[in-house]
Design a binder for these strands. Structure first.
Lengths: 246, 246
DNA sequence: CGAGCAATTGACCGGCGTCAATGGGCGTGG
DNA sequence: CCACGCCCATTGACGCCGGTCAATTGCTCG
């Protein structure tokens, strides 16, 4: 859609928007987006960026690093709903839901760009198509969660793990962060356990099995897929729900 | 907000909108909503209303009955994502996502009201606050799924079942369909199994246990809660995520 | 009244949880 | 630069929640 694929130099908010837009943005729309005031911050690994119960007056886009959305039960059990890659706007929902029902944590050290809700509302009133586009972003994020739920409800640990690998390699690939089917993998096994709805012990066993099957390798925080077709088959992975244009 | 509580006589689309709006709708906005052209249809029990892969040019609101959103794996396993009560707009997402990633089925016989996407887009351009309100609806629906995912990922069958009872009694109560903590319950046990991520056999065992604990009774398609506090405790139920005003 | 599915219950099984012990990587501080 | 501590990772033994299989009963509806 935009001639080059220079994810690094493009404006952060355009990374994802460009990849999901169904029409060509006008130069006015593009300019309006690019001049949104954005406050950049760094978040250390394992720190919460926002917390359940917060009432934010701004949302953020992830500039670099990997983050996770999670909820906890009253008894302290934790479930990761989805992971976020650069370009995502993980708490965009707070634009229209005052109280956050989820927490978002930095998995690796992250850079984030905060944008005031008021600025976004003003932008969307002036450019309705942009508002619809960001609405679309929240709908796609919701589709990720639904697919993830099908995963945890109806597939075993082996297929779930394979599916998570497929999804993240695809999404990181879409923003240029998984060349050669290989990417940084900052999640620890206890964190993966919270995403998959199993225990850390069983995560270890499952990864052992995926390695033994020759599908992936995972060492020193780096994931490499050796057999993409095999992984896709094990996961029953169908990327349609990601709404990524090829 | 609107003096009376007459769910039956109010315009269908206002049922839910009124219950989640954070501001008083102007009479112009109300009138514009009420004159949206709506095509009413009846759907038999166990029929799909829309299917995964469809590219609808309209969305629908549920006028009466109970429906479910579900997805299936390639190997045919089925996972229910959420149930819908009268007033909901279950496939509103199709307004901005062309291809449906989910199917929606009528559990009991349903009446539904179809509204063309073009009519909604026109309405939202003329009344931006209404557009934001419907955006809010999709965000709340997404929050239901997230809570449901915490459920399937991190609670056992007993707590999951209790949580589903709590959620639906609360949501049906909000539209006047669960007086005295009692409501129609058209879902069969095989259907509940697909919602809870367990087998029909285990649904039967779990309901037996909930009855034995004196929390509910469930006979001839009717649910009655006998011990609300006990059910809430068993489920760790916190209705905040429902965004229903008290 | 019969067909077909829902519901129930028992017997048995297996995937994943729990508990525990060991080794490894990394940051901090002496 | 090494020692220590802490958490991640791995593996084995064993237990339990929920799955599987099968038989029986009960509804509901043509």
């Amino acid at each position: 859609m935009n001639g080059t694929n220079d994810h690094a130099t493009r404006h952060p908010l355009l990374r994802r928007i460009d990849s999901i837009a169904l029409f060509e943005l006008s130069s006015e729309e593009r300019a309006a987006l690019e001049t949104l005031p954005m406050q950049v911050a760094r978040i250390e690994a394992a720190q919460d960026i926002v917390r359940e119960g917060d009432r934010p007056s701004r949302s953020f886009t992830l500039l670099s690093g990997i983050a996770s959305t999670y909820k906890t039960t009253q008894s302290g059990k934790r479930q990761v709903m989805s992971y976020h890659v650069p370009g995502d706007v993980p708490d965009l929902q707070s634009l229209h839901l005052q109280t956050l029902d989820i927490s978002i944590a930095a998995i690796s050290p992250c850079r984030v760009g905060f944008v005031q809700h008021e600025a976004m509302r003003t932008l969307f009133r002036a450019h309705p198509r942009l508002g619809e586009l960001f609405w679309r972003v929240t709908l796609i994020d919701a589709a990720f969660v639904r697919e993830w739920m099908l995963n945890t409800g109806r597939r075993n640990a082996y297929a779930r793990m394979a599916h998570l690998f497929c999804e993240l390699v695809t999404r990181l690939g879409a923003v240029g962060l998984a060349p050669e089917l290989s990417c940084d993998w900052p999640m620890t096994q206890p964190e993966l356990a919270d995403a998959l709805g199993i225990t850390p012990v069983h995560v270890s066993r499952t990864i052992r099995d995926l390695k033994a099957a020759g599908l992936v390798s995972l060492r020193s925080r780096r994931l490499t897929v050796h057999d993409w077709e095999g992984l896709v088959t094990a996961a029953e992975f169908d990327p349609t729900y990601l709404h990524v244009r090829r």
